[in-house]
């Protein structure tokens, strides 16, 4: 027979090659899991990319003592469109921005507010909830993103995404090492424009901290490249989510508004559509005030994308937001009365 190849090695030889590194991995996995169980590793803090850095930072801010008694919360348009510094100046009192991402559901945002209220005992007076019309039509929030927030708040290692490598890494303690140690020691570069503007995850965190939890979208809006339609509607999930949010949010007045879209992107009936959305949504939320005078559209030059204002647009919008909150306060009879009793949760 025309022999092809011969193995001059047996099972023991093969084991001698393969077993030692696998043994080392197994021992390392035991050590990592053991150290985590015994509390020898730092607690989880998986700020490993843009999204998770925002989530971890805002969750951490929610449970850190703050001066602000007014908190802005919402999706990424709340994060990027609202300058906490400008709103603070407008209201002449500190304001904290705890906005996260559109993928995070409303009950998780309510959880952040509860953390804030518990940490700053009696210090949360007003909540300004802002979403973009684009978010209101999102059919499904991302359980992954919401879970990241909850896991962080509860001190659990974040559940990793799918994939054989990730699962293996989870068993071997790699995910624990990544979320507890690497994320603290090794900043991760951010992609694209965010990378150019902020640099790394740690720099984004520094920026967020220095700006009261607000960020800036450094992109430039290009109408030609903008995708999607402006046919905004309210996804059904928001009814339950909004009612849950209202039930679970701590005792504080709630003002609700929508963030703007670029003028050239929306149709002529956009203002009517937004009004309808806001009315419907507020029926579920039962807020103490509706921020109806916020601009529903703004000139394209103030936008970074369809859903985010740029730095200049954010300053403009934040000034208007401060004025609108003042107006809402006066309508609900709390103007100039910061100690006015907050509404009790239902």
């Amino acid at each position: 027979m025309d022999r092809s190849h011969t193995y001059e090695l047996g099972g023991r030889d093969l084991a001698a090659v393969l077993t030692p590194p696998l043994g080392v991995l197994a021992i390392a996995a035991l050590l990592i899991h053991g150290a985590a169980a015994l509390g020898w590793l730092p607690p989880p803090r998986p700020a490993l990319d843009m999204d998770r850095t925002v989530l971890v930072h805002q969750a951490e801010a929610a449970r850190t003592p703050q001066l602000a008694r007014t908190v802005v919360i919402g999706d990424s348009s709340g994060l990027m469109d609202v300058s906490a510094v400008v709103v603070s100046a407008g209201l002449e009192e500190p304001v904290r921005n705890l906005s996260t991402l559109s993928y995070v559901d409303l009950p998780t945002h309510a959880r952040l507010l509860r953390e804030y209220a518990v940490t700053n005992s009696g210090g949360l007076r007003e909540v300004v909830l802002l979403l973009h019309p684009e978010t209101l039509r999102l059919r499904d929030p991302s359980s992954y993103h919401s879970r990241q927030v909850v896991d962080f708040l509860e001190g659990r290692d974040a559940a990793p995404g799918p994939g054989v490598g990730t699962r293996l890494s989870l068993w071997l303690g790699g995910e624990r090492l990544r979320g507890r140690c690497l994320s603290r020691w090794l900043p991760v570069p951010l992609a694209g424009e965010y990378g150019r503007f902020y640099g790394f995850t740690t720099d984004l965190e520094r920026y967020l901290e220095a700006h009261g939890g607000s960020a800036v979208d450094p992109h430039t809006f290009d109408r030609q490249k903008a995708q999607g339609t402006a046919e905004y509607r309210l996804a059904r999930r928001f009814e339950l989510e909004s009612r849950t949010f209202r039930d679970r949010m701590p005792s504080a007045r709630l003002y609700v508004g929508l963030t703007p879209a670029p003028e050239s992107f929306v149709g002529a009936d956009h203002a009517t559509a937004v009004d309808r959305l806001r009315t419907q949504w507020s029926a579920w939320l039962e807020p103490d005030g509706l921020l109806t005078n916020l601009p529903v559209t703004m000139p394209d030059r103030w936008f970074a994308s369809v859903t985010h204002l740029n730095s200049a647009g954010s300053v403009e919008f934040s000034g208007r937001l401060a004025a609108e909150v003042k107006r809402a306060r006066s309508l609900s009879g709390t103007a100039g009365a910061p100690e006015g009793g907050p509404r009790s949760p239902r």
Binding site: A16, P20, P21, L22, G23, V24, L25, A28, G161, P162, G163, V164, G165, T166, L168, S169, L172, G174, L177, R178
Partner: peptide, 22 residues
Amino acid sequence: PLVPRALLQGALLGAVILYWEK
């Protein structure tokens, strides 16, 4: 030798698994 080789290869394998992308 066996022990340093196992440590080196174990460390490399661990790092590859840690950064293995789906």
